[in-house]
Design a protein around this nucleic acid. Structure first.
Lengths: 338, 338
DNA sequence: TGGATTTGATAAACCGGTATAGCTCCTGCA
DNA sequence: TGCAGGAGCTATACCGGTTTATCAAATCCA
């Protein structure tokens, strides 16, 4: 027999389809003895549920979705997503829930995908990344009644469930370290200005500057690309009053920035200290290796998956889970200013 | 009305469910006028097919799968997969077929996934990467009767459909260029030895060596990690007779190799030329920027998707599609030997 | 002891589509 | 004029599960 159905099992066990369904799903309605027998037969016939049939009957598809709206060009080098993805999957695999991944160009396309997924019942819920200020996706998903969890954006009132790390605390740990080394001119090359985490980091730096006695602490926003990271670094290093330290919002930009410093003959860390606000092998491949803020991205993803599953099970209960604070891994790219 | 079903449409149009199904799927059985009317009503009610219901009835799920069996640690920096993925999706989206992505640790786990997918009817077909010599997945998929297409491995007799580029030609274009520059000691830091494409590259170099008058042309295999790439580079550069050029099978290893050269005070390209057998922003972020072999990975993925869809439609017809030869992009890391 | 409740099971409806057998009416051709 | 054949549609079975109404037998409690 090719693929046994529960009808086949019912036949073999001499019971009804219903009894088999109860037994296989561990719900009351059959005696322990019968359940045992049915399970054994199912095992013997190596039965597996037909996902579509189950989805149709139970109106849940055991599948969640994740859409990443960034141009593919910049996506690849960002180890962040690969780790996040692996983590998400590890969180899902326990319940053998599958993941649909989609890479699209922009948020409009992303919303289109959610609409389609919702109307075609393709996913039970979704994971959101790169939350922006007044993010249109939040309202859309609420309207679609599609369970969702936000990664990185801690939600306010009426917001979606989330998993987040304290960006403020993280930024502080960087600049306090730099200030302790003696740096007074620190620049911040940030990400896309309307990302919430970008704004939180910028604000954290601005708030801390007076207390740490920083003379100048500009935050310059970019599109997260290596090109803009390099361009802005070039501009900063061409000023008469150079910063003595630069904090980059991503490892890719930090690497690009290091390249610019080398090209301009600015010694790192002698004349310039560099810190990346995200860690990966990339930072360790460099010479000098970059000081970077490490977070457990894998675990981040795993927790997001967990929270999403809980949200699907109980949509009423909005969870906001905080993850451990990232820690600063000091390598060779930071030193006291000359 | 929340989510209209074809029954709702049938009701509103005053026809039967069957007629609606015919109309919506563009198959004969209804007059043009009726079809038109039904389509308009469906549009009006913003009907979308329920994926599970359709899957159950038509025994096809409009979803394909892709499993990547590499440790997540090394995966992220490899821009190759992100580009490939985007390409695959663009090839699928035309037919609005969704993609299931899974990252697992090893081939055993990967095969387990295929078994599950097949028995649960979760995908209509799969895309295979990193084909090895005597790859167990080929037999497994054949046994499961799961349509599949292999990326990068051109199949022999009884093999799976494939999409491939000419690795031999590619390797030749690199070493012929290096030989023309005057290099006679060329080393090749290859990938995992049992990958088919690794073997083809090694063989191409070995075969070409005498013709090009190379004194020494060793191929050294690795696990594709930056660590091993660096370690072997260190070993090569510590020999009394150093190679004057090194070809790396991936951009990540090439970057790691460049780091080692810098750390050992070996000038690039003055004392050592470096070529990466794969291109991405990574190579351009470096100083010097790396000469690399560029292939259109996005298009590669798109074609794989196309071939898979054709294979699903007609499993009897085994397609082996060759993609354009990759071209060498010369940057700053190659020069005549000192 | 007898009625009420619980337990273990069955039969059948249902989820939202697709596929098919069959029916009616119209057309074409001998 | 009669009949074959096709166009256009309906009714219904079916895909493989889940869920609910129902029911008989066993158990409980007064």
């Amino acid at each position: 027999m090719a693929r046994p159905t529960i009808a086949d099992i019912a036949n073999r066990a001499g019971v009804s389809k219903g009894a088999v369904s109860f037994a296989l799903n561990g719900r009351p309605g059959v005696s322990d003895a019968t359940r045992e027998r049915i399970l054994r037969i199912a095992e013997q016939m190596s039965w597996r549920p037909h996902s579509a049939a189950r989805a149709l009957g139970a109106s849940r598809v055991d599948s969640v979705g994740m859409v990443i709206a960034r141009p593919a060009r910049t996506l690849g080098v960002e180890p962040f997503f690969a780790h996040l993805l692996s983590g998400v999957q590890s969180g899902l695999s326990a319940e053998s829930i599958s993941l649909q991944l989609l890479i699209v160009e922009d948020t409009a396309a992303e919303i289109e995908v959610y609409r389609r997924w919702a109307s075609e019942h393709r996913v039970d819920g979704v994971i959101l990344v790169d939350l922006t200020v007044k993010d249109p996706r939040v309202d859309e998903l609420t309207a679609l009644e599609l369970p969702a969890v936000v990664i990185g954006g801690r939600g306010g009132k009426g917001a979606l469930p989330s998993v987040w790390a304290d960006d403020r605390e993280a930024m502080l740990s960087i600049v306090e370290y730099l200030a302790a080394l003696g740096h007074r001119r620190i620049a911040h090359i940030a990400g896309t200005p309307n990302f919430q985490h970008t704004q939180r980091r910028i604000r954290a730096l601005r708030d801390a500057a007076p207390r740490l006695g920083l003379l100048d602490a500009p935050s310059l926003t970019t599109d997260f690309s290596d090109a803009e990271g390099a361009a802005i670094t070039r501009k900063l290093l061409s000023q008469s009053q150079r910063p003595t330290a630069i904090v980059y919002d991503s490892d890719v930009m930090a690497v690009a920035g290091l390249g610019v410093a080398m090209e301009m003959g600015v010694a790192v860390p002698g004349d310039l200290s560099i810190v990346a606000f995200d860690d990966s092998i990339l930072t360790q491949l460099m010479h000098p290796a970059l000081t970077a803020l490490s977070r457990d991205t894998f675990d981040f993803g795993r927790q997001a998956a967990e929270v999403l599953l809980e949200t699907i099970a109980d949509p009423g209960h909005v969870i906001n889970r905080r993850t451990p604070d990232p820690v600063l891994t000091v390598r060779e790219s930071t030193a006291p200013p000359a």
